[in-house]
Design a protein around this nucleic acid. Sequence first.
DNA 1: GCCAACGTTGGC
DNA 2: GCCAACGTTGGC
Length: 135
Amino acid sequence: MKYWLMKSEPNCYSWADLIKDKKTGWDGVRNYQARNNMKAMELGDLAFLYHSINGKEIVGIMKISKLYHPDHTDATGKFGMVEVKPLKALKKFVNLAEIKANPKLKEIALIKQSRLSVCPIRKTEWDIICKMAEA
DNA sequence: GCCAACGTTGGC
DNA sequence: GCCAACGTTGGC
Protein backbone atom coordinates (compact mmCIF):
# COMPACT_ATOMS: atom_id res chain seq x y z
CA MET A 1 0.00 0.00 0.00
CA LYS A 2 1.39 3.33 -1.07
CA TYR A 3 0.42 6.89 -0.29
CA TRP A 4 0.22 9.90 -2.58
CA LEU A 5 -0.74 13.52 -2.81
CA MET A 6 -2.55 14.94 -5.81
CA LYS A 7 -3.04 18.60 -6.44
CA SER A 8 -5.86 20.44 -8.05
CA GLU A 9 -6.91 24.04 -8.22
CA PRO A 10 -10.35 24.11 -6.60
CA ASN A 11 -11.49 26.49 -9.34
CA CYS A 12 -10.71 23.75 -11.77
CA TYR A 13 -11.69 20.63 -9.84
CA SER A 14 -12.45 20.56 -6.14
CA TRP A 15 -13.27 18.05 -3.43
CA ALA A 16 -16.91 19.10 -3.74
CA ASP A 17 -16.81 18.24 -7.45
CA LEU A 18 -15.38 14.84 -6.63
CA ILE A 19 -18.12 14.16 -4.07
CA LYS A 20 -20.70 15.16 -6.63
CA ASP A 21 -19.15 12.95 -9.34
CA LYS A 22 -18.49 9.97 -6.99
CA LYS A 23 -15.33 9.27 -9.01
CA THR A 24 -13.16 10.99 -11.57
CA GLY A 25 -10.47 10.29 -14.16
CA TRP A 26 -7.38 12.30 -13.21
CA ASP A 27 -6.71 13.57 -16.70
CA GLY A 28 -4.72 16.57 -17.88
CA VAL A 29 -1.39 15.63 -16.31
CA ARG A 30 1.37 16.68 -18.73
CA ASN A 31 4.44 16.12 -16.63
CA TYR A 32 6.52 12.97 -16.86
CA GLN A 33 7.35 12.72 -13.20
CA ALA A 34 3.73 13.09 -12.22
CA ARG A 35 2.82 10.55 -14.86
CA ASN A 36 5.38 8.07 -13.59
CA ASN A 37 3.97 8.42 -10.11
CA MET A 38 0.50 7.60 -11.44
CA LYS A 39 1.94 4.58 -13.24
CA ALA A 40 3.29 3.34 -9.93
CA MET A 41 -0.09 3.52 -8.24
CA GLU A 42 -1.92 0.35 -7.28
CA LEU A 43 -5.58 -0.29 -6.65
CA GLY A 44 -6.50 0.72 -3.12
CA ASP A 45 -3.60 3.13 -2.68
CA LEU A 46 -4.64 6.28 -0.87
CA ALA A 47 -4.05 9.87 -1.91
CA PHE A 48 -4.58 13.22 -0.27
CA LEU A 49 -6.33 15.85 -2.33
CA TYR A 50 -4.55 19.19 -2.03
CA HIS A 51 -6.23 22.39 -3.12
CA SER A 52 -3.52 24.55 -4.64
CA ILE A 53 -3.55 28.32 -5.29
CA ASN A 54 -6.97 29.01 -3.84
CA GLY A 55 -6.93 27.21 -0.52
CA LYS A 56 -3.45 25.76 -0.17
CA GLU A 57 -4.66 22.96 2.05
CA ILE A 58 -5.22 19.23 2.13
CA VAL A 59 -8.95 18.64 2.21
CA GLY A 60 -9.65 14.97 1.76
CA ILE A 61 -8.52 11.41 1.18
CA MET A 62 -9.09 9.60 -2.10
CA LYS A 63 -8.73 5.99 -3.11
CA ILE A 64 -7.21 4.84 -6.38
CA SER A 65 -10.05 2.98 -8.10
CA LYS A 66 -8.61 2.36 -11.56
CA LEU A 67 -5.04 1.76 -12.66
CA TYR A 68 -3.09 3.94 -15.08
CA HIS A 69 -4.65 4.00 -18.54
CA PRO A 70 -4.45 6.32 -21.56
CA ASP A 71 -5.65 9.88 -21.20
CA HIS A 72 -7.78 10.48 -24.25
CA THR A 73 -7.47 14.23 -23.84
CA ASP A 74 -3.79 13.84 -24.78
CA ALA A 75 -3.40 13.78 -28.55
CA THR A 76 0.25 12.71 -28.35
CA GLY A 77 -0.59 9.50 -26.51
CA LYS A 78 2.26 10.03 -24.08
CA PHE A 79 0.23 10.66 -21.00
CA GLY A 80 -2.29 8.68 -19.02
CA MET A 81 -4.40 8.91 -15.92
CA VAL A 82 -5.82 6.98 -13.01
CA GLU A 83 -9.32 7.07 -11.58
CA VAL A 84 -9.96 8.15 -8.01
CA LYS A 85 -12.88 8.00 -5.63
CA PRO A 86 -13.44 10.12 -2.54
CA LEU A 87 -12.85 8.16 0.67
CA LYS A 88 -13.40 10.79 3.33
CA ALA A 89 -13.11 14.49 3.94
CA LEU A 90 -10.67 15.63 6.58
CA LYS A 91 -12.24 16.81 9.79
CA LYS A 92 -9.68 19.60 9.91
CA PHE A 93 -8.07 20.82 6.72
CA VAL A 94 -4.28 20.88 6.89
CA ASN A 95 -2.87 23.98 5.25
CA LEU A 96 0.52 24.63 3.75
CA ALA A 97 1.67 26.89 6.59
CA GLU A 98 1.03 24.10 9.13
CA ILE A 99 2.89 21.59 6.99
CA LYS A 100 5.86 23.93 6.60
CA ALA A 101 5.83 24.66 10.33
CA ASN A 102 6.17 20.98 11.24
CA PRO A 103 9.84 19.94 11.33
CA LYS A 104 8.85 16.30 10.78
CA LEU A 105 7.37 17.27 7.40
CA LYS A 106 10.42 19.14 6.17
CA GLU A 107 11.22 16.52 3.57
CA ILE A 108 7.71 16.18 2.19
CA ALA A 109 7.55 16.25 -1.59
CA LEU A 110 4.82 18.87 -1.49
CA ILE A 111 7.41 21.36 -0.25
CA LYS A 112 10.57 19.90 -1.79
CA GLN A 113 9.07 19.74 -5.26
CA SER A 114 6.42 22.35 -5.06
CA ARG A 115 5.50 22.16 -8.73
CA LEU A 116 4.95 18.43 -8.91
CA SER A 117 1.22 17.77 -9.08
CA VAL A 118 1.28 14.07 -8.21
CA CYS A 119 3.82 13.15 -5.56
CA PRO A 120 4.54 10.29 -3.19
CA ILE A 121 3.96 10.63 0.56
CA ARG A 122 5.84 8.53 3.11
CA LYS A 123 3.85 6.47 5.60
CA THR A 124 5.27 8.54 8.46
CA GLU A 125 4.25 11.76 6.71
CA TRP A 126 0.84 10.33 5.97
CA ASP A 127 0.30 9.44 9.62
CA ILE A 128 1.41 12.85 10.85
CA ILE A 129 -0.95 14.65 8.50
CA CYS A 130 -3.83 12.34 9.39
CA LYS A 131 -3.23 13.19 13.03
CA MET A 132 -3.19 16.91 12.27
CA ALA A 133 -6.42 16.46 10.34
CA GLU A 134 -8.01 14.40 13.12
CA ALA A 135 -8.84 11.89 10.42
C1' DG B 1 24.16 15.99 -25.90
C1' DC B 2 24.44 20.78 -24.42
C1' DC B 3 22.32 24.93 -23.33
C1' DA B 4 19.64 29.17 -24.09
C1' DA B 5 15.09 30.58 -24.53
C1' DC B 6 10.76 30.04 -23.29
C1' DG B 7 6.52 28.34 -20.86
C1' DT B 8 4.16 26.82 -16.62
C1' DT B 9 3.22 26.21 -11.81
C1' DG B 10 2.12 27.93 -7.63
C1' DG B 11 3.37 30.63 -3.42
C1' DC B 12 3.51 35.18 -1.91
C1' DG C 1 0.93 40.66 -10.56
C1' DC C 2 5.49 39.18 -9.58
C1' DC C 3 8.94 35.92 -9.43
C1' DA C 4 11.53 31.60 -8.30
C1' DA C 5 11.88 27.00 -9.56
C1' DC C 6 11.65 23.87 -12.78
C1' DG C 7 10.32 21.43 -17.21
C1' DT C 8 10.39 21.47 -22.24
C1' DT C 9 11.86 22.73 -26.76
C1' DG C 10 14.82 23.44 -30.44
C1' DG C 11 19.16 25.10 -32.54
C1' DC C 12 23.71 23.91 -32.87
